[in-house]
Design a protein around this nucleic acid. Structure first.
Lengths: 347, 347
DNA sequence: CTGAAAGCGCTAACAG
DNA sequence: CTGTTAGCGCTTTCAG
């Protein structure tokens, strides 16, 4: 009995199971991997022994033999915390049901050492694949290295959505919807705060904005488009420019909620009424947009779904490593327009 | 030449290096691990071969032989995204310089399967240690299992800071400082929105609040203490109770910024002036508190430092696995009071 | 359907 | 200071 407990603590190996069941290592291995060619009775016997010895297959031995770490690396550079957290959750969801785990790696996408950095990380972990978040996925030198080394990866919101495994959000369509919504409210002078130029989403959202104006035959006033950097400070600066104009826009569409926060701050510190004098909309549905007063009209992205999908795509890729290894797969996800109190009909 | 390239692509092993250098595997191993007892000349020779063959030690073989995955698992349950992100960054900092990596695992601390869940995760990864974020670290059954299995772990903000490896933030002192600051502004009727009862920080912040009132000989009006759950909704409910009183408090100290956001929302929707009629302070220095108008007075925690310290503590523990394996180590970190526009002298 | 033998790439123990 | 011999725990051959 005491001996038995000792057994269960000292973690049994596949050999122990084989002996206990009176079969070979290999047969146990077959059972463990649900391979065919094991007689049901034998399988049962092995399963019983596994149970009896409380055997757990050692992942380190497994990894070495299979040359697979069973790890996916999420590679990112300074994303919004909210996005990151939900992305991670989605990835873990997908990983958990497939015997994979999530390894984390942050980096600086502009660093001259980016490629070396990632190359080292791969060498030090042997992760089975990478999930590259925008704009990391847009660094050509990095992509070249991964292809050369035949490392699997999936890109989230890459600029080039036509090659490889990609998960994109329908930024253009959503930005169109937002703008269309404002126009239907009677707005014609709608300013747009552009996002960080290195992000694919920025260009697409601007296109969506233009699409909507076009649809409604409203000429684009280029002076109403102001560059931002996807953060609070740049949103505030943009708002200053916009609000200092003799003729203010009646609505401002900020390319993301962080910039919208900056715009809102500037508006409120000038005591301008929202949405009375001016309407404001953002993009992302951050906690801020939900908690500020007035709450921000915005669009929510399915962060969790993005993570889940990206991870699934990647895992499927190297699980059936069949012919379509080079096939590209492109997923497009829709966002949801969330109308709240920061926007209203033109007075 | 082509052959040479082939070599570098097919990844050399330690045997290749040994042959190339004309020494044994073990000698190469010694060099790789900076062990003593290698003649400088020999070391040089080996290093040259490593360089020549572009050899990288395979982490999978390393792990199996050492029975160490070189992975730390961060275990958490639904923290604030901002906290999580910076915590992760700090942990990765500490890991990177010591040949470790960060593995992620989210869980539900209230789940009846928590222990099984974590036990499986450990079996499936063989992580070298766990970083348990509050309130996961307060689950006794989990801690018992870890001790029984002799799994290394460090706790962040545990209720019991006296045992094991712990990193705590000086919640009590900081809450004292915040309250003291309000009192010095002339406030006497200061309400307190209590945090989630399962979090150690909640009780400590309340104690700090009480400490400050005591110091200034202000009787605690228990009806000014309202229970919250560390989120926006509960903050808003708490504010409703507080603002519906005939005699409103002149200041509200919300146990965290998310609740402060709820309080602020309620205050602003009632058109009450801040800080004119009422002062509001929070805790955490979330992005919200920095971006809202008026910006929130709050306290910032060194999230990155917490992560870095926790990981370092843990890694040191199992690196010199000497006698002090059972010694407890307790780190206390200070926060910084951040005074902004949501608080002011009593009128 | 099953098993024996070899090996994944590295470290550990022990000689010399 | 250096090398030899065994493994770590699992999966692959490949033969039966």
């Amino acid at each position: 009995m005491a001996n038995n407990v000792e057994q269960t603590m000292t973690t049994a190996t596949i050999v122990d199971v084989a002996n206990h069941a009176g079969v070979s290592k290999k047969t146990v291995s077959r059972v463990l991997n649900s391979e065919p060619n094991v007689r049901p009775a034998t399988r049962e016997k092995v399963l019983k022994s596994i149970e009896a010895l409380n055997f757990k297959r050692n992942p380190l031995g497994l990894a070495l033999a299979r040359k697979r770490s069973h790890l996916l690396a999420l590679v990112y550079d300074n994303p919004s915390p909210n996005f990151l957290m939900h992305l991670q959750t989605g990835i873990m969801d997908a990983c958990r049901s497939r015997g994979m785990g999530l390894y984390l790696h942050n980096c600086r996408y502009k660093s001259p050492n980016l490629v070396d950095d990632i190359e080292h990380m791969i060498a030090n972990t042997m992760v089975d694949g990478l999930i590259l978040s925008s704009p990391v996925c847009d660094q050509q030198a990095l992509i070249d290295m991964l292809k050369r080394r035949k490392v699997n990866y999936v890109s989230i919101n890459p600029k080039d959505a036509e090659h490889g495994l990609t998960v994109n959000v329908n930024n253009r369509r959503t930005a169109f919807d937002i703008t269309d919504y404002l126009i239907n409210l009677g707005h014609k002078h709608i300013a747009f705060v552009k996002g960080h130029p290195d992000l694919a989403s920025s260009g697409l959202r601007e296109l969506g904005y233009r699409d909507a104006l076009l649809k409604h035959h409203i000429d684009v006033d280029e002076t109403l488009l102001v560059q931002g950097m996807n953060n609070f400070v740049s949103g505030r600066s943009a708002a200053k420019k916009l609000l200092d104009r003799k003729r203010k826009p009646t609505a401002i569409f900020a390319g993301n909620d962080d910039m919208a926060a900056g715009v809102l701050y500037e508006i409120q510190s000038r005591q301008i009424a929202i949405p009375g004098e001016i309407s404001l909309v953002g993009f992302d549905d951050t906690p801020f947009s939900q908690h500020v007063w007035p709450r921000l009209t915005t669009a929510s992205q399915p962060f969790g779904e993005i993570g889940r999908t990206a991870a699934s795509l990647l895992i499927d890729r190297f699980n059936h490593r069949d012919k379509d290894d080079e096939t590209s797969k492109k997923i497009l996800m829709e966002c949801q327009l969330i109308i709240r109190e920061s926007s209203g009909a033109i007075q």
